[in-house]
Nucleic acid binder design. Structure first.
Lengths: 350, 350
DNA sequence: AAGTGCTGGGACAAAATTAGTCCCGTTAGT
DNA sequence: ACTAACGGGACTAATTTTGTCCCAGCACTT
């Protein structure tokens, strides 16, 4: 018909045309409602802090949400109502459309050449509480891809820990086995180690798990000796039969600092141009594995042989790392990230 | 599932829950856009007057609409853009839903026991320009119900005149014949007489018409004599073959005043409790025809025999009259009215 | 060819709304 | 019994919105 102009098709696009302020308004309110949902009974001040807004604005919005019956105020705080939950669920696609998350998801899926990109709204650094959302989203993906009696390998890190906390029994198929994708992580916080997280996954979903505690940075001889142990061999066998891997992606520098690497090791990484880290491998900008930590763990070939891979990482600072990691092909991967990382990735790609 | 609470289903309902101010906002903006569309190139001040808002508000809204590219400002005034028209069209159902017009349409259709009720937003008395909308709506209905070679009888009145103006050639089927539902209306404004309006309909749609000019208030003998005239007989024959009637509904008192009725006639009407008037018949509250003007015109039985009847009337003051008229069964009628009349009708029915 | 009545846009003070910052009585958890 | 956090009230400062002009420019009319 008409040549140049792209026709408006959907109602929501027309709404946005005639009421542009709705986009921001919806975004704000939705975040409030979502926060109240997540933080359970929460006070006005705590809410304001979590969303980085003034107390008064928090009050204004919560007043409105209460009047609309979307939240319920009590002495112990505000919590979401039944209709609030419905609204949250129904409006999600619209929020994603208007905030541009939908298009970002599509663009990144294409540019990273992976199966799917899922973005949760927010910045994991600015608003740590949205890690819960990342977790919920990842847990949802897991429940979709995992079938009965499958083996799920998980890695460590704070993000993965959050996901483990978000898993509920009803979500997941039965008879799964969770295993740590790698041995110990040295002096790291116990709660962030793969073994612990595998246990949490299993516990929260009512499934079994297998652990393997090993010291990190083994010498060549010690490594060769230990992989002959029956317990270890058994674990390596499990890696071969792993169906789903769910892992974080780390920034190489941050990772090296967290592990008590020596200065030589750090400068070694820098020399090789390491940008990202995932299950013990360090990758450079072009996606080449430039180094790996010598410990028992799932191998890259084993990962790539898996049915599904779920990668989870968020925050602007992770953007470069995520890009680097996906330079090596990982077609069957589903990435769960936040909008801050997504924006930065698209910015870096331009 | 849950017993009591009615579940939110649609996205638009959820939007309204979380952003209640959107309803009014959309309504306002939509009216602006609609007005600009109707009034063609129009200035800020004229627009403000038409919508009964301050000059500043008119300016604020038009500024926004212009920024959004929905309207185009030029030295001769503002007019709607292509995308503006699209938005107008796409958003109509939403406006109707949020302003409660949709539910009013359903309620009235049921309570009046007629085929369909179509409501245009506004008050025909406060905003005369929306008569154009009434007209457009009625013309749209006509184009849907009228088939080729059919005979359309029209009555008089300012509303019908507005409809006639809104008819365009492309709208209507070909080879229609428009006829006046009744002879002259005495001393009334020429432009509001059925004969003139039939001619306008025909002219604007590129069809034929037949007129019949007769004096009103004929004596019994004169009446009997005149209906023997070939020209008149021919017209009466047309009434028998009429397919579609499109008529206004008048308030009895106003009608009697407009026609130069004598005081006796007026008090006579009051005595009989006449409330409404349509094609020469006066009806009381219960829908009984209490009087009719003695002139050549379509008879009630002939009307009821028609395939489709389109009734058009708007304004709060017409509410009682419309209710009265539809008390006599008129199942195949489609009523086109405005929201002011609709509200009042529902109010009176409670 | 000058006049007149529109147009959109600029400017500015008054009015209304919103945001920031306290306080307070109450209540749940300790 | 105590404490910390809750929602809600109150009041001022800041911001936005609104009402009301004026203005230069363009299109009709005279």
């Amino acid at each position: 018909m008409r040549g140049e102009r792209k026709d408006i098709i959907t109602v929501s696009e027309a709404q946005l045309k005639i009421m542009p302020e709705m986009s921001e308004l919806l975004h704000t309110r939705y975040r409030f409602l979502q926060m109240i949902d997540m933080l359970g009974p929460v006070g006005r001040r705590g809410l304001a802090e979590n969303l980085s807004v003034g107390e008064r604005e928090a009050r204004k919005e919560t007043d409105l949400l209460r009047e609309q019956g979307l939240i319920i105020a009590s002495h112990s705080g505000m919590r979401i109502s039944e209709s609030g939950k419905e609204v949250l669920e129904i409006l999600k696609p619209l929020v994603y459309e208007w905030s541009g998350i939908s298009v970002m998801e599509k663009q990144l899926t294409q540019k990273l050449c992976i199966q799917r990109v899922l973005i949760v709204d927010g910045d994991i650094n600015e608003t740590p509480s949205i890690k819960i959302l990342l977790g919920l989203e990842a847990a949802k993906v897991l429940s979709k891809v995992a079938k009965e009696k499958e083996i799920i390998a998980v890695t460590g890190g704070s993000t993965l820990a959050a996901i483990a906390d978000s898993v509920t029994p009803s979500d997941q198929p039965n008879n799964l086995t969770f295993i740590a994708a790698r041995g110990g992580m040295g002096v790291d916080d116990m709660r962030l180690q793969a073994n612990t997280i595998a246990a949490t996954f299993a516990h929260n979903s009512g499934n079994a798990y297998r652990t393997l505690y090993l010291p990190e940075h083994l010498s060549e001889t010690a490594y060769k000796a230990i992989i002959e142990e029956p317990m270890v061999k058994e674990m390596i066998d499990l890696y071969d039969r792993t169906d789903v891997v769910i892992h974080g992606i780390g920034s190489a520098i941050e990772m090296a600092s967290r592990r008590n690497s020596t200065e030589t090791e750090k400068s070694n990484l820098l020399e090789h141009g390491a940008v990202s880290e995932a299950f013990g491998y360090y990758f450079d900008e072009s996606g080449k594995a430039v180094q790996r930590i010598q410990t028992v763990g799932i191998q890259r070939e084993q990962v790539n042989r898996c049915k599904s891979i779920i990668a989870v990482a968020g925050g602007k600072n992770k953007a470069a790392a995520i890009l680097s990691y996906f330079k090596q092909g990982a077609n069957q991967t589903i990435l769960v990230t936040d909008s801050a990382a997504a924006k930065e990735m698209l910015h870096l790609l331009k």
